[in-house]
Amino acid sequence: MSYKIFKINEDLKEFMPQEVIDLEEKATWGNPKRGVMDLPYAKELIEEHSLCAGCPESAAFRYILASLPNPEDTIIVNSTGCTSLVFPHIALHTVHSLFGNQNAVASGIKRVLEWRFPDKVKDVVVLAGDGATVDIGLDMTLQSFFRQEKITTICFDNEVYANTGGQESGMTVKGHVFKMAPKGKQWDKVPMWQLAIDSGCHYVVRMTVSSPKKVEKVIKQAIYVAREVGPTYIHLYTPCILEIGLNSDDGLEEMRRTDKERFKFFEYMTDEAKEVIQRKKEEGLL
């Protein structure tokens, strides 16, 4: 619809919590140019988070939500994991259904919304952990790419099953000792960004969330391309500071370090994606 759904009935305003009133009055709605620069001034779409203090996933959440070009018509699909505890704090329609089925649920939502609202843009964005995206849900992640679903998939790669207490995942680097890999992981980190390319994604990025402006640009590009062309995939390194033994204020440093090595910024786009991104730049939206 529009951000008008956040308008509060005047007669009821005095009973509403301040956070809800702020959503109406101070959040950025109806402005595709919104971005991370609004963070200090605007009401954020995320109220609180229940992650560990200093968890880089919380920074990723804030940057992503601040960068959505069309929050008033964006539906977010998530999965089970540390991040699933955060979604109820988001002021948009979000859904948690099962662990690993996020891209299947998102496919159904997107197709029905396209059919129900042919004249409106409804963006569907998937946010899930590495276990959800690459291990238990890999089939559904890739199949949604094969089917060319017009959704944006964002993976929070912390290289571990964090929420269940630090077990090895497919995204753990070879040799790392985690629970269930007591002798160290025996095989390589899954090159998920490459699988995304091979499976038909039109825009693929691998990065850390050390640079908010960069995250904003990538999120917007991915959503614009998904809207018009087909699936897009963003692979974010959000280190689990708890499981790798870092302090609350070490997350950013860890990401800056890996910016120079295994999470060096990597971007891929098809010609169709390039065309969309070019056009959006000309329109002043990027």
Partner: peptide, 9 residues
């Protein structure tokens, strides 16, 4: 799961 997404929408 897909049909669930359809129904949710």
């Amino acid at each position: 799961s897909e049909i669930a997404g359809c129904a949710m929408a």
